[in-house]
Design a protein around this nucleic acid. Structure first.
Length: 510
RNA sequence: GGGGCGUUAGCUCAGUCGGUAGAGCAUCGGACUUUUAAUCCGCUGGUCGACGGUUCGAUUCCGUCACGCCCCA
């Protein structure tokens, strides 16, 4: 690029080939800083803060100018320069730290050479300053700086201070810029953290043990999904990134830990969408001596508790629609949900393969010749009912055919004691009474393997060690998986999963 | 994989019925000692996503590709 020869550092950080005049100007300023720098160089690390902007606003935001004058409070603050207004021999600067922003008032007669230097600093630079708190004529709490230092020279200009960063691609690819300029985005990730902490606290209070199970697995299990493959060189062993931790967590139930959970990443080698990222965060928990109804109760309680803890209310808005979590969450069967959303369907033929195929054909749903009535029911459900489940709703009684790890229902062996939980038309959680009959589990695995051999890449592998674990005896257990990303989407009013993942999966930049 | 939309200055966006482009903010220079998207004056800044085609001439029309967003499978 044409600016490469402006100074001796022109080749640094130029991988993107996006050098321009603005960056060149800043590089020149940095070069001058390097020349003039004393001990500590151009990137000193001897400045420390004794106050944070947000805490100062909280502590002194209500104090009058007179009070501040009568009670001199000297503070040392630092952060990123977010705007500067130079008015001749005095200037205003606002700096941002992790807690908020605070304004500095800078005067030439007080600061001398540092003031002259400041005139050349740029928005985005990281600076430190110290002085007494006061209130400006217009009433803004500010620091009358008597010390001022440039700590880090920023070489790249920030987005427009008013419009911010609107380009979604840049927001995702350069999340650091998004976080610098968008309080909304920062708040999403703070909320995400609070959600995870709430769930941990909730489970810890119930005596759950948080555990970590393998991410790299020789046999990927616990879900029907295509895995990512990898290879262990020393063992010359093909391995898979986990699609779920389920089978390991249930081994721990066999081991007697009784109440375990894990919050961590799963990996599924599938497409991307507003609701799918190849790696996503799941909470899985297993509670011995419980069944799927207990788990539903837990989900309902935790969802409400989460809303109350985050917002202090059970009402919230997601994408313009009002949600009232105080209402009991309805519980409907899969078949009832199909009936409710398919006018004219024959309720007595919902397990009739020929009839279901005909309905699927009418709706343009593709299916495999080996799909049985249970699989076709789920196809129908997903096509016609799922998106309409806006208010929090439990759908239960999933066909055993599509629930290879779930316990069959005692009264109706066509279905399993399994539910899924929906909000805003999206699956948020999936839970069931765990299948603890090792011989039934072995038969289910064999059926899955048969599907896989016929080309179903999502079908499960046979996990002999898991069957062996069940043969030692697993207590009656209820289990649950919660899609944390989707939960965060709901509680942060985010339309896309990319908005709640710091670094969402993207194609490499062109 | 299919369909739709998008890609123009650092950022946010206009625009060119085909004749190599503008605004606001930012930057740069100047004025200004309490500003709040500060104000005032002046100046810069672009391979119009990439590659081909049509054309005297393409940022504009056509095609292919790349990346992104949305919808569908």
């Amino acid at each position: 690029m044409k600016n490469k020869d402006d100074n001796g550092t022109g080749s640094g950080g130029d991988e993107g080939g996006d050098e321009n005049k603005l960056i060149a100007e800043r590089r020149a300023k940095l070069a001058e800083l390097r020349r003039a720098a004393g001990p500590g160089g151009a990137f000193p690390n001897d400045f420390r803060r004794d106050a944070l902007a947000g805490e100062l606003q909280a502590a002194y935001g209500e104090r009058s100018g007179e009070w501040l004058e009568a009670n001199p409070t000297r503070v040392q603050v630092g952060g990123r320069l977010m705007f500067k207004r130079v008015m001749g021999k005095a200037s205003f600067a606002k700096i941002a730290d992790r807690t908020g922003q605070i304004q500095l008032y800078l005067q030439q007669e007080t600061l001398g050479p540092a003031y002259e230097a400041f005139r050349g600093w740029d928005v985005g630079d990281i600076i430190g300053g110290a002085g007494l708190l006061f209130r400006t004529r217009t009433g803004e709490l500010s620091v009358r700086a008597d010390q001022l230092r440039l700590l880090v020279k920023s070489l790249r200009p920030l987005p427009d201070k008013w419009h911010g960063l609107a380009d979604t691609e840049t927001r995702y690819r350069r999340r650091y810029v998004d976080l610098i300029v968008s309080e909304t985005s920062r708040e999403v990730f703070r909320t995400r953290s609070r959600i995870v902490r709430y769930l941990r606290d909730f489970l810890d209070a119930l005596g759950f043990l948080e555990v970590e199970t393998p991410m790299m697995q020789p046999i990927p299990g616990g879900a029907t999904a295509r895995p990512f493959r990898t290879h262990h060189n020393a063992l010359d062993l093909d391995m898979y990134l986990r699609i779920a931790p389920e089978l390991y967590l249930k081994r721990l139930i066999v081991g007697g830990l009784d109440r375990v959970y894990e919050i961590n990443r799963n990996f599924r080698n599938e497409g991307l969408s507003t609701q799918h990222n190849p790696e996503f965060t799941m909470l899985e928990l297993y509670l011995a001596w419980s069944d799927y109804r207990d788990i539903m109760d837990w989900v309902e309680k935790a969802t409400r508790g989460l809303a109350d803890t985050l917002n202090g209310t059970l009402e919230l808005t997601y994408q313009g629609r009002r949600y009232d979590l105080a209402q009991p969450f309805p519980r409907v069967t899969v078949e009832q949900a199909i009936i409710d959303n398919n006018p004219g369907i024959d309720p007595l033929s919902l397990r009739d393969l020929t009839y279901l195929r005909k309905r699927c054909d009418q709706l343009g749903i593709a299916y495999h010749p080996d799909d049985g009535p249970g699989k076709l029911q789920i196809e129908l459900f997903e096509k016609t009912a799922e998106a309409k489940l806006l208010d929090p709703t439990f759908v239960y009684a999933y066909p055993v055919e599509v629930s290879p790890l779930s316990r069959p229902n005692d009264a109706d062996p066509f279905v399993a004691d399994r539910f899924e939980f929906f909000i805003a038309g999206r699956e948020i959680a999936n839970g069931f009474s765990e299948l603890n009959d090792p011989e039934d589990q072995a038969a289910r695995f064999r059926a899955q393997v048969a599907r896989k051999e016929k080309g179903d890449e999502e079908a499960m592998f046979y996990d002999a060690d898991y069957v062996r674990a069940l043969e030692y005896g697993m207590p009656p257990t209820g289990g649950l998986g919660v899609g944390i990303d989707r939960l965060v989407m709901f509680f942060t009013d985010s339309p896309s999963i990319r908005d709640v993942i710091l670094f969402p999966h993207m194609r490499p930049e062109a």
